[in-house]
Design a protein around this nucleic acid. Structure first.
Length: 165
DNA sequence: GCCAACGTTGGC
DNA sequence: GCCAACGTTGGC
């Protein structure tokens, strides 16, 4: 999941109370469909900083709530307001909730990933790709993890969500 | 700040 | 339904 750290950084997610773990503002159908169709509770995702001097994977988060309507699309005051959703009275966009789980002790830069022969097929590295939500294969995941050496966050940073069953 | 790659929009 | 114009993303 990409984010511009000036808007919402990995550290912001780490510090955020549970009520602010929603990943809102995704306004692309393909990205939306990934969240709606693929994201399951307990799934892990990379959090990637884009549109910065050194784009990089910052850490790992866990899906703690599956897709539900992104109500910001209906809020005229929101930067993510969507008139077409408002016209139907129903948001056509979804968000998920994620909680920070671990931080890369060595954030994995885009440049580093480009250097890996084993990552050449990765969606993120495709020229011109702009999707803010992208698939990662198991192999790609393992390679990025081995490069980043994630450390679990301490309790109180990136809160644990109570399990119901 | 540039620009390539796309997605979206809207006229026809 | 085509497609040109336009807007946005995001690396560089």
């Amino acid at each position: 999941m990409k984010t511009e750290p000036g808007e919402f950084s990995f550290d912001d997610l780490v510090a955020a109370p549970r009520s602010q773990h929603h990943w809102d503002g995704v306004r692309n159908y393909q990205a939306r469909n990934f969240m709606r169709d693929e994201f399951k509770r307990g799934d892990l995702v990379f959090i990637y900083h884009s549109s910065v001097a050194e784009p990089k994977v910052m850490g790992i988060a866990e899906v703690v709530r599956e897709a539900y309507p992104d109500s910001f699309a209906l809020d005229p005051k929101s930067p993510y307001f969507d008139p077409k959703s408002e016209a139907t009275g129903e948001s056509r966009w979804v968000m998920v909730d994620v909680a920070a789980r671990s931080r890369m002790s060595q954030p994995v830069t885009l440049a580093t990933m480009r250097e890996q022969p084993t990552l050449q097929g990765m969606a993120l590295l495709r020229p011109g790709q702009r999707l803010s939500i992208q698939p990662v294969t198991k192999d790609e995941w393992d390679i990025v993890v081995s490069l980043g050496k994630p450390c679990p966050l301490l309790k109180g940073q990136g809160q644990r969500s109570p399990r119901k069953s």
